[in-house]
Structure formats: structure tokens, C-alpha cells
Deep mutational scan, measured.
Amino acid sequence: MDETGKELVLALYDYQEKSPREVTMKKGDILTLLNSTNKDWWKVEVKITVNGKTYERQGAVPAAYVKKL
């Protein structure tokens, strides 16, 4: 869990989004888990830093590609 009490997951593999509802992640990324009720796809929040600014993006990733921490 992070400092706000939200559950975290670890990306076990790289994943490139294939639709606007998904998010890209790299192996080793730590993501915030938002919903894991679907056994195949979990909704997560990814933090992306671009030019020193951090953005948050929500989307789905394959459940088999992440592990709860």
C-alpha cells in the first residue's frame, strides 16, 4: 500500500497499450491498483513524468502482467 492506503501492484512485464482504455507500463513499474474485480484486466493508475511534470493516467492492464505488493 502507498501512503494514502491504496493498494500497489508491480509490473512483471512490459505492456504497450492497444486502445485508449489501456495504459502502457514497463517491467518494474509500481502502479496504483484502482479495481481488480475483473479477473483478466485490472484498472490501474500510472504516474508519467514528462519534462519534469508528473501526470496521472488511469487505464486497464492485463492482470497476469502485474502482481499485488
Rank of each mutant, 00 (worst) to 15 (best):
I30F: 04
M1T: 13
V61W: 03
M1H: 14
N35M: 07
A11L: 03
K6E: 09
K26G: 03
G5L: 12
G52I: 03
P20R: 08
Y55W: 10
K68S: 06
K18Q: 14
N51M: 09
L12E: 02
E22H: 07
D14P: 04
T49A: 07
E7H: 10
K27P: 02
S36K: 08
R21Y: 14
L33D: 00
V44Y: 01
T37M: 10
G5V: 13
N51H: 10
L34I: 14
I48H: 08
R57H: 07
E22L: 04
V44S: 00
N38G: 10
Y15P: 02
K67R: 13
Y65S: 09
T49H: 10
G28P: 02
D14Y: 03
G52W: 03
G59E: 01
Y15L: 01
D2T: 13
L31H: 00
T49P: 01
L10V: 15
E3Y: 13
K53T: 11
A63Y: 03
T32K: 13
Y65A: 10
L8M: 10
Y55V: 12
R57D: 03
T32N: 06
T4D: 13
K53N: 11
G59T: 02
E45L: 13
Y55L: 10
M25P: 02
K43I: 15
L12S: 01
V44G: 00
K43Q: 15
Q16M: 12
L10P: 00
W41G: 01
A11T: 02
G59H: 02
K67S: 09
L69G: 02
Y13I: 09
K67F: 08
W42I: 05
I48P: 00
N51F: 08
Q16Y: 14
K27I: 05
V44T: 00
K39D: 11
E3G: 13
K68G: 03
I48W: 13
T4N: 11
L12F: 02
T32Q: 08
D29W: 11
K43L: 15
D14C: 08
L8V: 08
M1W: 14
K39Q: 10
S19L: 05
V9G: 12
K68D: 03
G52T: 03
K43N: 11
S36G: 10
K26T: 08
A11N: 02
P20W: 09
Y15H: 03
S36L: 04
E22G: 12
K47P: 06
M25N: 02
W42F: 06
S36C: 14
P62F: 06
K26E: 05
L31V: 05
T54W: 08
Y65R: 04
G59L: 08
V66F: 04
A60T: 14
T37S: 14
N38K: 06
T37A: 12
E56K: 15
L8W: 13
L69A: 05
V23D: 02
K53Y: 11
R21V: 11
A11I: 03
D29R: 03
I30E: 00
G5K: 14
I30P: 01
Y13A: 10
E3A: 13
E56H: 15
E17N: 07
L12V: 06
E7Q: 13
N38M: 07
Q58N: 07
Q16N: 14
Y65I: 06
K39P: 13
S19M: 05
K68F: 07
L33C: 06
K6M: 11
K67D: 06
K43Y: 15
N35V: 06
R57K: 14
A60D: 15
R57I: 09
G52C: 09
V46R: 08
K68E: 05
E22C: 07
D14H: 04
I48E: 09
K47G: 04
K6H: 13
K18V: 07
R57M: 07
Y15F: 06
A63F: 02
V9Y: 05
Y55T: 12
T24R: 05
L69Y: 07
T49D: 07
N38E: 10
T37D: 15
D2Q: 14
V46L: 12
T37W: 07
D29F: 04
Q58D: 05
Y15E: 02
V61T: 02
L69K: 02
N38S: 09
V9I: 07
L31F: 06
K27Y: 05
K53E: 12
L31G: 03
D14K: 03
D2I: 13
Q58K: 08
E22W: 04
L69I: 14
A60E: 15
T49W: 08
S36T: 09
W41P: 00
L31P: 00
M1S: 12
E22R: 04
K43P: 01
K47S: 12
V44I: 05
G5R: 14
D2G: 14
V66C: 14
D29K: 00
K43C: 15
T49M: 11
L31K: 00
Q58Y: 07
R21N: 15
G59S: 02
K6L: 12
N35K: 07
M25S: 01
N35F: 05
E56N: 14
I30C: 08
L8N: 05
T32D: 04
D29V: 03
K67Q: 12
V23E: 03
K67H: 09
L69W: 08
S19D: 10
R21E: 15
A60I: 15
W41H: 01
V9H: 01
N38D: 15
A64R: 13
M1K: 14
M25F: 12
L69N: 02
Q16E: 14
S36Y: 07
Y13N: 07
D2M: 14
E56L: 15
Y65D: 03
L34G: 01
W42S: 01
V23L: 11
Q58H: 07
G28K: 02
P20T: 09
T32F: 09
T24A: 05
K6C: 14
L8C: 14
W42Y: 07
D2C: 15
W41N: 00
K6R: 14
I30G: 00
K27H: 05
L33H: 00
V46N: 03
V66T: 01
P20S: 12
D40C: 14
G5H: 13
T54Q: 09
S19Y: 05
G59I: 07
V46S: 06
V9P: 00
K67Y: 09
V9M: 03
V44A: 01
I48R: 08
V66W: 03
Q58I: 12
W41D: 00
Y13P: 01
T54F: 08
K53H: 12
K18C: 13
V46Q: 12
I48F: 11
L12M: 09
N38C: 11
A63Q: 04
P20I: 09
T4K: 13
L10H: 03
E45A: 14
K39F: 09
A64Y: 08
E3W: 12
G52D: 07
I48D: 04
T4R: 12
G59C: 06
K53M: 13
P20A: 09
K53L: 13
T49Y: 11
T24C: 07
Y55C: 11
D14F: 04
L10W: 07
A11Y: 03
A63S: 11
W41Y: 07
W41A: 00
A63K: 04
T54G: 05
E56P: 13
V23F: 11
L33A: 01
R21C: 15
A64P: 06
Q58E: 09
E3H: 14
V50C: 12
D29S: 05
A11C: 13
E17C: 13
T4I: 12
E3V: 13
K53Q: 13
A64T: 11
A64Q: 11
D40Y: 15
E7S: 10
P20D: 11
V23G: 00
